[in-house]
């Protein structure tokens, strides 16, 4: 069994991701297509929410992955700080735009869903507001990457920001619950609960979640390859200017 740290070698990472990417993109596309078509065309309406329940197949997976993308960035930042593997720092950079897109999807589908169900596009509910704050964290993180020219300095500073931001994101979450009891329902899926949503909605939702996870992994791989190349390009540029 190969150690996970072998991927820390950019050459190794490029070779493995080159072989894995076609599979990942195919699987992600297939899972998304199956899940969304299944959800959109072949599931019944909810007896209270009508056909708006179909939005769940986009809303829940994107919201889950918006948070998971940040957690992945946090882990990658920690690995960069502790072990100084470049691939790790670049993977964190590559994941941020994906995370912010998922956050926007979760917010947009939530607003569209909220309009008929709650009668409002937006409410200052803890869950909604924490996603708005998560969005701001993503923006700040990406802006810091953009602003710093030297890639190693940028990797260090964004990693520190990611760590501190994570702590404050958790504090904000509890502050918001304290601030306002919400309109949003509780968790849709949890392992310890007897009563999740009904099976007809549950299985296509699982396929959609798998699709979003696979799409995230495929895009992170692809974008990390781009970042590795960009970093090499930067190094060559420096060398050329020195000669």
């Amino acid at each position: 069994m190969a150690s996970v740290w072998e991927f820390a070698n950019p050459r190794k990472f490029m070779a493995v991701s080159d072989r894995a990417l076609p599979w990942l993109f195919t699987l992600a596309g297939a899972a998304l297509a199956i899940g969304l078509v299944w959800g959109f065309f072949f599931t019944p309406d909810d007896f209270r929410q009508g056909s708006t329940v179909k939005i769940i197949y986009l809303h829940v997976p994107s919201a889950m992955m918006a948070i998971n993308a940040w957690i992945m960035m946090l882990l990658a930042s920690l690995i960069w700080i502790v072990r100084r593997h470049h691939v790790s720092a670049l993977a964190a950079k590559a994941a941020a735009p994906i995370g912010v897109t998922f956050t926007v999807i979760a917010l947009a589908t939530g607003a569209i869903w909220g309009q008929p169900m709650w009668g409002t596009w937006w409410a200052w509910d803890p869950r909604l507001t924490s996603f708005l704050i998560l969005f701001l964290f993503y923006l700040g993180y990406m802006a810091l990457w953009q602003a710093i020219e030297d890639p190693d300095t940028a990797a260090d500073l964004t990693s520190v920001l990611c760590l501190v931001g994570s702590v404050f994101a958790v504090i904000s979450r509890y502050a918001l619950i304290f601030w306002n009891q919400g309109l949003h329902q509780g968790a849709t899926l949890s392992l310890d609960k007897e009563e999740n949503i009904a099976d007809v909605f549950y299985f296509p939702l699982l396929v959609c979640i798998a699709g979003f996870v696979l799409l995230f992994i495929a895009l992170v791989f692809y974008r990390t390859r781009t970042e590795i190349r960009a970093r090499r390009l930067y190094a060559i540029g420096l060398k050329e200017r020195m000669v």
């Binding site: 701001l136 923006l139 700040g140 802006a143 810091l144 920001l161 404050f168 904000s172």
Partner: peptide
């Protein structure tokens, strides 16, 4: 974080304001 940057002021606000959220909530409350 932003000390070395030429136009760090605006970026500084973008980075710091989300971190101010919990303090603001508890203070105003």
């Amino acid at each position: 974080l932003t000390v070395g940057l030429k136009r760090g002021g605006l970026l500084l606000s973008l980075l710091v304001l989300p971190l101010y959220v919990p303090t603001l909530i508890f203070g105003a409350e």
